[in-house]
């Protein structure tokens, strides 16, 4: 699964359906800020919230579009635009006074768990502009133009609280991957190692006892012979 592709698709869905009607000519330089807040849970699912703040003209166009009156269209369009994913739990809210609307949904299985408890999410780009804010927070920024509309996109990715060793790596095709580890499987490994230790200890005790028994038997045999 690819986080970046996913965001680009959302951008296309939102921009084309609501904003693009107001652009061309002077609006070539008009920027649109999109903020994606992505919270990964400890099962590899993502809870996404997209916030769109529009200017007066864009808001008017948006309110005229079917999308603002029938949010199920938005859901369907997104599902069709992202056929590889499973999307669920769509939510929509808007603040008319602030000319802002928010769309929330979950993406199931965005990250997959590999060997050794390492999670992977494809970014499908060679050199993303990634800033690591903390061990579990990343910001990816990118600028793009869609039909003359300049879009400044910020993606905030929050990894689960048990994530560690998060980094950007490359796959065999040179594409970037976001990887992180979790403590999943740690207890299982501890149990396995403890089991091995116990079994070895038991085996050593059996060996030691058998050696002692041999010595005792020799003593008893000598004493018996003397008697």
């Amino acid at each position: 699964m690819s986080i970046r592709t996913f965001f680009l698709k959302i951008t296309m869905c939102l921009a084309l359906s609501s904003i693009i009607t107001s652009v061309h000519a002077q609006q070539v330089v008009e920027g649109l800020k999109q903020v994606f807040d992505v919270k990964m849970d400890d099962k590899g699912n993502a809870e996404v919230e997209v916030t769109m703040k529009l200017n007066a003209s864009q808001w008017e166009n948006y309110k005229r579009s079917p999308l603002s009156n029938n949010n199920s269209i938005l859901k369907k369009e997104m599902e069709r635009a992202m056929p590889k994913y499973y999307l669920s739990d769509f939510k929509y809210s808007e603040d008319q006074m602030e000319r802002t609307y928010k769309i929330g949904f979950d993406i199931l299985g965005l990250s997959t768990l590999g060997k050794g408890g390492k999670w992977e999410s494809k970014l499908e780009t060679k050199n993303p502009d990634v800033t690591k804010l903390s061990d579990r927070e990343f910001v990816i920024t990118q600028n793009m133009t869609t039909n003359g509309l300049f879009i400044n996109q910020t993606q905030k990715i929050h990894l689960p609280s048990n994530a560690n060793n998060a980094k950007i790596e490359k796959d065999s095709f040179g594409n970037s991957l976001m990887t992180y580890s979790t403590t999943i499987g740690l207890m299982s490994r501890i149990l396995t190692y403890a089991g091995v230790l116990l079994a070895l200890a038991g085996a050593w005790l059996v060996y030691r006892n058998s050696q002692k028994s041999k010595n005792n038997l020799k003593v008893v045999t000598k004493q018996s012979a003397v008697a």
Binding site: T192, A194, G195, L198, G202
Partner: peptide, 9 residues
Amino acid sequence: LIVAGLGLA
């Protein structure tokens, strides 16, 4: 100990 260890392992 051996049985428990194998069980855990």
